[in-house]
Design a protein around this nucleic acid. Structure first.
Lengths: 243, 243
DNA sequence: CGCTTTATTGACCCGAATCAAGTAGAGTGG
DNA sequence: CCACTCTACTTGATTCGGGTCAATAAAGCG
């Protein structure tokens, strides 16, 4: 029996810098402890003080914030290869929930182990640091889209981002990928009402640039969608270079 | 003549963990190289590949993103003690400008020097990593406010955040601080039009919770403002503990 | 003291929220 | 196998928050 598919975190990091065999081995050891979460369940809750960090191996997870009046906002969507809460290694308490939007398989990585690895392999430490700064860059892109883009452009931007990110970890092909999320989830990512998301999605489909049937997104006109969403991939740091 | 006021970065870090004398010395050495920027000038531009990172010593700096149609969005406001672009140590190219909103004095810290320090003093390295994860946490708080809060609450949240952050680095007293920014800048941080910012500001003043005269913000009713802005300071990681 | 930038106000309009109702699927169980 | 239920999706009507446009007042500032 073959060893499990390549660790998606290795794919994520390898896209940005060379990852040595020793570093890969360290990551494999770090991510041995798997766990499953059913769609809709919370992996971590606001206020928790986790002793380990969660790496998504399969499925989609979201960072969810709840307001006093019950409103929800999703500040990030995480895919396989994403370290959802690596920052909890350094942070005090979780300032948000992490929720499984679909059934998820994750790896739990104990904080002391991570710390040990980063001290033994400083370059790998920097790569992990890098992954949290890419998170921050994605946050900024979302801020810009929330603050200054039309819903239509925002949605286009979101679909572009998801394509690139999923492609890197081998979950997209031919400008097409699975995105099994509800319009409710999407509304909470775009900061819109569900009704308006539905209408915006219809407008987007009407452009012919994208089809989104069931869980499958297919980008028919990549350049058009990129332009509509003013999507520049620079913030995802896709260049392979020494870090 | 006395040595310059304590490095605000040391204040920032000391609030979150003990910083040893050796670490402070290393930071002082790192931040010797000062430079001034006039209000309105760009310290770094989108697309740049900086060889050093900027620490704000005095003044206010913003991360500014420009869209195709000329719209501007500010994704973060930085104050003394903030490492504006520490992430450029790891990232490829700047995905945004860094602009001086007021006259600024900064320290330029060369990337090789930072790298060397973090390898020699891993704990200090983690503290710097921590500062970038706090940036990310602030980004998330802004995302939530942009997506799901009313302009009035958003503004209240913003003023609460600024008070806490400025207080930590000794730039606030008695719930009062200097915030010499224009309503134009504020509009680009809140994702609103200038006109609406002006009106919202009047509404906020009308609550009596805040006065903002000239450059001076005075919070008259901290608890009221906190509640209005649903401000929870957890995301700023104000607990001093081992990191 | 002009000149430019910022702050303020009013009129008008449009985009997005809200409210309400109905449709379509996917399970579930009798 | 079909009624029942739950959730997600869709559509229409209405309301309202916030944008846009335009004009004026008030600061800064060279």
């Amino acid at each position: 029996m073959r060893v499990a598919v390549t660790n998606p975190l290795v794919l994520f990091l390898s896209r940005r810098d060379d990852v040595s065999a020793e570093e890969i081995a360290a990551l494999e050891t770090l991510t041995l402890n798997h766990q499953d979460f059913a769609a809709g369940t919370a992996m971590i809750r606001q206020g928790d003080r986790p002793q380990s960090s969660i790496l998504v191996l399969d499925g989609l997870a979201a960072r969810a914030h709840y307001l006093a009046d019950g409103k929800r906002m999703i500040s990030a969507l995480h895919i396989p290869g994403d370290y959802v809460d690596l920052h909890s290694l350094l942070l005090d308490r979780m300032d948000h929930d992490v929720t499984a939007l679909t059934d998820c398989r994750v790896a739990l990585t104990a904080h002391p182990d991570i710390r040990r690895v980063t001290e033994r392999l400083p370059h790998l430490g920097r790569l992990l640091w890098l992954s949290t700064t890419i998170d921050a860059a994605m946050h900024r892109a979302w801020i810009v889209a929330l603050g200054r883009m039309s819903p239509l452009s925002h949605m286009a931007h979101f679909l572009c981002e998801m394509y690139i990110r999923l492609d890197i970890v081998g979950q997209a092909a031919d400008h097409s990928y699975r995105l099994p999320i509800t319009q409710i989830d999407l509304a909470d990512m775009l900061g819109l009402s569900v009704v308006h998301v539905n209408r915006t999605l219809q407008d987007l489909r009407a452009t012919g640039m994208v089809s989104w049937v069931g869980p499958t997104v297919s980008i028919k006109d990549w350049n058009g969608l990129r332009e509509l969403g003013q999507f520049e991939d620079a913030y995802l740091n896709l260049n392979k270079r020494p870090r």
